[in-house]
Design a protein around this nucleic acid. Structure first.
Lengths: 343, 343
DNA sequence: ATTTAGCACTCGAAAGAATCAAGTGCTAAC
DNA sequence: GTTAGCACTTGATTCTTTCGAGTGCTAAAT
């Protein structure tokens, strides 16, 4: 068990290092006005903390920096529930004071504000259209051969897919098909559409439409084609000002990773609900070695649908970032739920 | 006027520097098998070329590098119409051999292929939906208050905007409105929609619909809200491997600029048709000082609608990149024209 | 039994000096 | 007009030196 004083010193070192990015020496802590121990005493404690794995030394005669274990302890045990500063609150409030009219826009803006506020990189996953249910379907023919299928979900998202029409299909027939599709598929989640097509629609179509076979094939393909999930970033360049990225090679590795949306997507959608903190190697990605990722989920009508997060150096301002994300997550949940379920 | 030999030397220096990124000395040129002059002779010519402004020296005792004027001369006068290498052609052909089914996807892929092929950054502007004409309009109500307006253009693009419904509007009325809108607005370019609304639709709506006023207001706003144009990038991190970007600060400036889509958009949409080469400062952007931007436009049915480009170091492989872009521009034009206008 | 002053020691960062290699410009010879 | 020869310039690299911040340990003070 760590003594009161050890806790104090650990916290002091993390706070200091968070700001300066330089190893913290015993003297600089001892000089703080709320400290009455001599540098020597503090050195002894530091040596103990190092032995316990909470601190480490970049080289043998330097000050200490927190280890990953140190940060972990700090986040798990030393973090008082953080109250956001007045100005942070104001910034968040103005964001959500604007009339929210479209999901994508809100997510983008949230990511932007988060990165502005923190000077770190923010990431956001849009709400998964996938689970949403079909509200209305429309097929608009463009010419004899091609058309666009449009699907509107109950959450107001619009998906559109190009479609090839069988050569001998006339307008009235197409209209009939659309009616049948709407009748049979309303309320079906998008990801189930293509299976339902055969169980629900096939035989009805068979009865009423001549050329149903080739149409159905092309339609099924259009419906099936999965959209890769979108990842939104804010302030991708912010980290470049941080001293841990003075090396271009590191920058390249990180930015290359961030361009692979699917990897990032997998990393963010952990399934866990609420705020999650992953420090350094806990991310299982080499490029994140000295980065931490903090994520929070947001929901629509009680169902978690997306994630916002902050990617910063391991020495990031945990309390503030966690506070911000908690708050942002709540605001997003409210705004989106309002948007789709207001009566 | 430059002598035959001067032209040869200028070209040799540019070709060499393009590959090595190191100042070129007289000896290394003289050693080439197709050269019979001694280093001293070449030094004399180099001194003349420098005086004329085509070459410069990083420092007094180093070899020469091409100046911006040198590159400009090279591009304008020294470039033989470039034939693409077999492997480049193959890569492009396989890209367009796949069935093209959606605009955005094609543009994205094109950008990706370009950056892969060149190891530079590729940029692409999607086709402007703005000029396209309305083919069909649909309004899908989500609940009592909100709806989504969907506009399909004759080029197959789908735009959707959220909409607030007046509180006392029933379904039959909405249907009537949609019919009127379609009847009156079909064939109108999207960017003219909101003006036409008042000249064409206002008085008809007045006659047939009770609650037309507040609906029209909200609809007009939805239609007016301009979508910021999208810019697609490929290989944003490619340049980081180039020696001109060993300095993180430069990287930051560039990447920050690239995040401002509107600026990039303006830079790319010059109005000029065909292939354009802008070298270094010709771009009027500080961050592009040692970068060149080569762009080419692509068209749908003869009308230029978008741009693809390559951003690389000034010492880029001009002939190859120009060849690639010319080719890509033609392929894109064909693919997209096919997509929308095939009979 | 803690705490602290004192001091030798360690190590990286910064500054300076020495060396090297590539390349030039100029002069004089071909 | 061309070229060999040579003194000279300059950035890059490597090695030293110096400096300062900080440690660990011992012994004295509380």
């Amino acid at each position: 068990m760590l003594s009161e004083r050890q806790l104090f010193i650990l916290r002091a070192i993390i706070d200091d290092y968070t700001q300066t990015a330089e190893a913290v020496g015993s003297r600089s802590i001892s000089k703080r006005s709320d400290v009455n121990y001599s540098p020597a005493t503090i050195r002894n404690e530091m040596a103990d903390l190092e032995e316990l794995g909470f601190l480490e030394k970049p080289h043998s005669s330097s000050g200490r920096i927190p280890s990953q274990k140190g940060y972990r302890y700090y986040v798990d045990h030393l973090l008082s529930p953080h109250h956001l500063s007045r100005s942070d609150l104001v910034d968040l409030r103005t964001l959500f004071a604007q009339k929210v009219s479209e999901t994508e826009e809100v997510i983008k803006k949230s990511a932007h504000v988060l990165s502005e506020l923190t000077s770190y990189i923010s990431v956001a996953l849009g709400p998964e259209a996938f689970e949403a249910k079909l509200k209305h379907m429309q097929i608009v023919p463009l010419n004899k051969e091609s058309a666009v299928a449009i699907m509107v979900t109950d959450t107001g998202q619009v998906e559109n897919r190009p479609l090839t029409l069988p050569s001998e299909m006339d307008m009235s027939e197409l209209e009939k098909i659309v009616n049948i599709l709407n009748e049979r598929l309303q309320g079906v989640p998008l990801y189930k559409l293509h299976t339902r097509l055969y169980t629900e629609v096939f035989n009805v179509l068979e009865k009423h439409v001549n050329n149903y076979r080739s149409f159905l094939d092309s339609f099924e393909q259009a419906v099936r084609s999965e959209r890769p999930e979108k990842v939104y970033y804010g302030g991708k360049t912010n980290l470049l000002s941080q001293p841990e990225f003075k090396d271009v090679e590191k920058v390249r590795l990180l930015l290359e990773l961030l361009e692979e949306d699917d990897k990032v997507h997998r990393m963010l959608s952990t399934g866990e609900n609420g705020v999650t903190v992953r420090i350094g190697n806990e991310n299982d990605v080499a490029a994140f070695e000295d980065l931490s990722l903090i994520t929070a989920t947001y929901s629509i009508a009680g169902k978690p649908v997306g994630t916002v997060g902050i990617l910063g150096p391991t020495r990031m301002e945990y309390p503030r970032v966690i506070g911000l994300l908690e708050h942002m997550s709540k605001d997003l949940t409210n705004a989106l739920t309002d948007l789709y379920y207001k009566k």
